[in-house]
Amino acid sequence: MPYTNQEYLPSYEELTVPELEVTSAVFRTAAHHLGKYCDNVCKEFMLCRSEENDPRKCLNEGKAVTRCGFEFFGKVKKHCYAEFNQYMQCVDHSGRLMDFKNCRKTQATFDNCIKEHFGQDRPELGYFSKVRLHKTCRPRPTMAPHIMPERVPDPPSPEELRKPTDKLKNPHFTAVI
């Protein structure tokens, strides 16, 4: 382990939160609405992650993301359980890539339910694939100062070297000459 005891690693209490224990099919089914519901939180987290390059510093943002996911799935379970399950079954058995193209009917039912209870539309095609700007109040991260070792003294110039020095007084040196 390259981490010494002085370096910061979050404790188990900080790291233990209820996780979203759902399969890929559920994520794939909910993806567009989930992404739009938690848009701001997700953008904040991903910005933090790419700016800091350090998972230790983005724990709170990550927890907010998971909490938002819980909120969304709880609401879906409360209001649109049957529609969601129907759509999820279709997507799960849609094919190798879990395509949406075979499930337009069930998708429309689910979308209507979401529109009714959440008041949000399905985001337009390519919404999550384009560059989206995000305004944050988190300060821009700065690196710790890089403390360099002391500068090595310059070598003597040729003129200095040519001057007669104390070396000539050295008996061994003169003996060699």
Binding site: E19, H32, L34, F45, T66, F128
Partner: peptide, 21 residues
């Protein structure tokens, strides 16, 4: 499909970061 993957990415990363730490 890309949209769906991108939308889910933060949730996966949040969980993964916590697990690795």
């Amino acid at each position: 499909l890309f949209d769906a993957r991108n939308a889910v990415e933060p949730f996966i990363y949040a969980e993964k970061d916590r697990a690795i730490l």
